[in-house]
Nucleic acid binder design. Structure first.
Lengths: 213, 213
DNA sequence: CTGTCATTTACCCGTTCGGGTAAATCAGCA
DNA sequence: TGCTGATTTACCCGAACGGGTAAATGACAG
């Protein structure tokens, strides 16, 4: 994959809150002759400013960040720079995470245990304007896309469910009568393809629809 | 924290499946004059052999590893080398993870976003024979310790619960009558301090008692 | 303006769940 | 051997849940 003609290297920006990981990633990228790191930050809130200042060719973005999440940071960057090429690089891989990342405009989604050479290939591919998604993650994305969207109310109810609330309690909290809550659960069960509330809770957590933190 | 007298550096071994993270961590450690990396592996199964070969002073051990988990790897090492000083360094921090790590003989438990200097301090402290636990994680550990132990059967039932099974289904699967399952849930609810099965499921996941994978 | 969809509430009914109580068996420990 | 704790089962009862059906409102798009 080495370029025969000497060209300007692809300028990469790293967004990850683990200093050690940034350091390792930087070393890894610099070890490729056609890649170089021009910017780093560990905080999602700084990502846009840093992008503005450095105008990198490709951004490697973690999802779980202090301050602003990776998805929000990506959205912010792409709002101002619609051509920004962002690769999400993370340890988490729920359907929702992948979906939201791609929705937010990320061109690729890689797991942190991706082999070095694949990462380099992905950076080059994304820089060239391609969409790079592994077999496995494409499948995940497809699965997520065929799942019906949840409405706001359904999300609210799900959120309360994760807090361990009963139908009555959920009703009180959301200013609804119990029957309404039950109605929402009915459609929720159908959409998530589950039989009861416990399965719904687990499914929601597993797919990343809700978070425990 | 620099040593005034030149001494042999503390020899560190890294066990983590992310190559980039290992690289960054190694760079970070080498940047300290009194620390050096003498061994690395990304697979828990290799950890013992590598330890045997290199006899490091301190091991930095990730928990989620391919092959053998970090806890099991730590146990294996400490069985043969009871004086082995292991620091668990991971992104996950459920009560159970912390508890099991310390149980397995780890001398410290650090999160991967621990600042560089704290990590170095921890390595030195553990090498000197100390037990290094942050305020926050000590509290977590204490919480876990005051939670009553779950019996094998209770774990079985909990496991089935996470699969979304009903009492009847759990009974069938475990060759028990439904009443027995209900009895186990009763004690389970009391031990986990929850009101119903959904809360139990969430609590178990949150505390790391069961895993979704 | 009309159809679609989210949202809300209502009622009925059978099933499941959670709590209380009781008791038998078995293993390990004092 | 007698006590403790895990495990098992049983019965009762009220509360919570899940499914079916129906319908009204409001918003938004065609």
């Amino acid at each position: 994959m080495k370029k025969l003609k000497k060209t300007n290297p692809i300028r990469v920006m790293l967004v990850d809150d683990h200093p050690a990981y940034r350091k390792g990633m930087a070393a890894l990228i610099e070890s490729e002759t056609d890649l170089t790191v021009v910017a780093e930050t560990g905080d999602g809130r700084d990502a846009l400013q840093v992008y503005r200042a450095k105008k990198p060719d490709v951004v490697l973005m973690d999802l779980r960040l202090p301050g602003l999440g990776g998805v929000e940071a990506t959205l912010a960057i792409r709002k101002e720079f619609p051509d920004a090429r962002v690769i999400v690089l993370t340890t988490f891989d729920t359907d929702e995470d992948i979906f939201r990342a791609i929705q937010s405009g990320a061109k690729s989604y890689l797991l942190k245990d991706t082999p070095d050479d694949e990462l380099a290939t992905a950076i080059r591919g994304v820089h060239a304007g391609k969409q790079i998604l592994s077999e496995k993650l494409s499948r995940r994305l497809a699965e997520r896309q065929q799942r019906p969207e949840l409405t706001q109310r359904e999300m609210d109810v799900l959120q309360m469910l994760i807090k361990g609330r009963s139908n009555r309690e959920i009703g009180t909290a959301l200013f609804l009568c119990e029957d309404t809550v039950k109605a929402h659960f009915k459609t929720l069960f159908a959409k998530l393809k589950v039989q009861d509330r416990t399965e719904a809770a687990i499914s929601a957590i597993r797919h990343g629809i809700v978070h425990l933190d």
